[in-house]
Design a protein around this nucleic acid. Sequence first.
DNA 1: GTGGTCTAGACCACC
DNA 2: GTGGTCTAGACCACA
Lengths: 123, 123, 123, 123
Amino acid sequence: MEFNNDKPIYIQIADYICDKIVTSTWKEEERIPSVRELGADLQVNPNTAMRTYEYLQNKHIIYNKRGIGYFVAENAMQYVTQLQREDFFDQQLPRVFKAMLSLNIPFEELQNHYSIFINQHVE
Amino acid sequence: MEFNNDKPIYIQIADYICDKIVTSTWKEEERIPSVRELGADLQVNPNTAMRTYEYLQNKHIIYNKRGIGYFVAENAMQYVTQLQREDFFDQQLPRVFKAMLSLNIPFEELQNHYSIFINQHVE
Amino acid sequence: MEFNNDKPIYIQIADYICDKIVTSTWKEEERIPSVRELGADLQVNPNTAMRTYEYLQNKHIIYNKRGIGYFVAENAMQYVTQLQREDFFDQQLPRVFKAMLSLNIPFEELQNHYSIFINQHVE
Amino acid sequence: MEFNNDKPIYIQIADYICDKIVTSTWKEEERIPSVRELGADLQVNPNTAMRTYEYLQNKHIIYNKRGIGYFVAENAMQYVTQLQREDFFDQQLPRVFKAMLSLNIPFEELQNHYSIFINQHVE
DNA sequence: GTGGTCTAGACCACC
DNA sequence: GTGGTCTAGACCACA
């Protein structure tokens, strides 16, 4: 896995895991890799993997059974999507709209780009 | 001026200056405040102001006449808006569209939120 | 290490590092000292070392792995020598030739001085 | 006149004046422009022109008659050329030779570039 | 441990 | 007056 520089690595890993959950690759109540395994898989320091798990645990997306490992929480999938939607509507969208205002970009142009984008991502 | 914590101050100042340029508050070839003035105005250390000017000079948005001060570069306005548009279409928009796909948000919903946003930002 | 006054210290450190790279003392993809180590080694403030690393990173001679340190970039050696050759042929040499013209110094005299110089620098 | 950023402007002006002297455009014992005139001609602050004159006076290339103006010194032409020769042989040349050593540039290559240079500068 | 940012204050050359 | 460099020391997020 490759990492950007605009986000902390541990956050990018969290996104990656959330993706696994949303797509049901990792199902609810299922055990997920140990910090060491995850670290080895993604070529990061186990501490960084640990940080991701702490982060996700604080958000109640995963939970920990002591001495056993980490597990996907109940309703995690639904919860993650909800968080993502909130982020989308409360953070991303306003920022985009603000940019459109200051750059004088009409809504129609958005629509054009959306059509193009869709065509490229549907096969 | 107030600063967030999600971006370095010197970047936020750079954004602030770009805004001045885009709105023609500071015109091309016009002298802009000295590092000391800017620092005093925005209540930051002159070094931080200096850092902003270095940053903007590297991007060819401002330039320096030795012993005299910094000046808005030729075509700076056009250049800045172009950079902003590129960032919008190449970075922000694809991210939004990707999120829409994975969250199953139809384009119509976008339109609704846009209407609401516009109503709030028009007098 | 001792520093001149005709160049900023951070540039002189950059030259010093480029020298390490060109002579393969520091090899490609190899980790280089942390800003604190380098500062301690060369008896300069870590900030100054940091300034050098920023400078070299902008020139793509070194790169950064977050939280880990700075590394010599791929092809850095080749790249640095190329930069030096360009500077030599495009900047230094024309200046020398121009001076020779205006001072009426024949090419033969250059050759003499070269012989003397070589004798002094060969063991 | 246009100025580089790698030398102080007042030095560049001094070079410009020395050139006038060497080429006998400004002859010995001849009055040269006042600081105000020179400043206006070259579009620089009179203070900067003044600095140049101070600099050249310290090197005994020009001298001052109070209330009248600045004059090219006796034997200035000869003296300037001598200074330039010294700079050439003591400063520039060793630097070039050093660069040749570290870049593995053989003397023959120098000769080639010299031929090219000469062809371009002779009509 | 790492880099990165910021402040405070100093000194310098230059215009 | 201007920018530019440097130091000292602090704090922070990140790996």
